[in-house]
Write a protein that binds this DNA or RNA. Structure first.
Lengths: 166, 166
DNA sequence: CTTGGAAAGTCAACAAGGCTGCCCTAAAAT
DNA sequence: ATTTTAGGGCAGCCTTGTTGACTTTCCAAG
């Protein structure tokens, strides 16, 4: 047995290359499901995933600046900018100039924006709820734990930031 | 309390909207980490994620046809075709005409293709191993369970197909 | 056998959303 | 006051998703 994962005995079976590959494939297939429902809704409105991500985090932390959103999403300015522009033009997002620092733009969802956010979020939460319910609370705890460990430190920081919001 | 998730008592706390949102965010941030290492390697070679996905599944099931790969990846023909063409041109993938059905093309990794596959896979498995190890076997079981429930039925079928390969 | 439809694969052309690089404005520092 | 720095916008490129038209091959019905 040249298998490096089994060297420690049965307790490390979950670290065999085969098990790790299975995890990789699970992530791949699950992520498709994860985005499938919102994608369908977005298509009706002529938007894409990028719009969804922006809407999600603006809703999560109203008033955040473009730069903050940028670092949360981990994309470049222009990538985000294009998306933000259409959302503002369409009246889903409002951009207010900062009062203390007039360079900054603070972002808020309008009424219409909140409506779309709820539609998207509801679809995605329904799928998540189904999976959680089927798997049970203990599985959910493990799920969250592994995902958190999988993040880059920068992303984990952002993730934990949001954690302590009411 | 108008919170729909808590109606069943403490055992259902993991189904509150807030908990579901946290799961959604965890998926988002974790997926970035999940793809980060391969992305860096791919960039050096001038490839993208699409190439990685093709390489992964050709390695997993050598000899599979274009159509099969198509349905596993869940993309359209042209999307895959462009990627396959460059991989074939670059000598990483070999396409053999089917002997029984001469319309079909069977795909195999060349030596060079296997080398890149190992490089990509190793990077991704290292990250996964770190997360698994930090979270522990029970968490991993939960992780896998929730992901499996999150898949669309079609994707789950593909996922379980691969399962029973040696 | 031959013909007509279905299936596998290729290719052309378009759209979304990543990226870099350049530019303007506002604020801060010298 | 003038230079430096930070936030944000715009132009243009590339990957990778899409649809639709076209070839080749297979198979089945006349």
């Amino acid at each position: 047995m040249a298998d490096s994962g089994t060297q420690g005995g049965e307790t490390l079976l979950f670290l065999t290359d085969e098990q790790l590959r299975r995890g990789i494939e699970a992530m791949f297939f699950a992520y498709r499901g994860f985005t499938a429902d919102p994608d369908r809704i977005l298509e009706k409105h002529g938007y894409g995933r990028a719009h969804h991500r922006a809407i999600h985090f603006i809703n999560r932390e109203p008033g955040l600046t473009v730069t903050t959103l940028l670092s949360v999403l981990g994309v470049t300015k222009q990538s985000l900018n294009r998306v933000l522009r259409t959302l503002i033009e369409d009246g889903l997002v409002e951009s207010r100039i900062g009062r203390r620092d007039r360079r900054a733009r603070h972002l808020y969802l309008t009424e219409a924006g909140q409506v779309l956010e709820r539609e998207l979020s509801e679809a995605q939460r329904n799928r998540m709820r189904g999976a959680y319910r089927a798997a049970g609370p203990q599985a959910v705890a493990g799920f969250r734990m592994v995902l958190e460990q999988m993040m880059d430190p920068d992303m984990r920081r952002h993730y934990q930031m949001l954690k302590d919001q009411p």
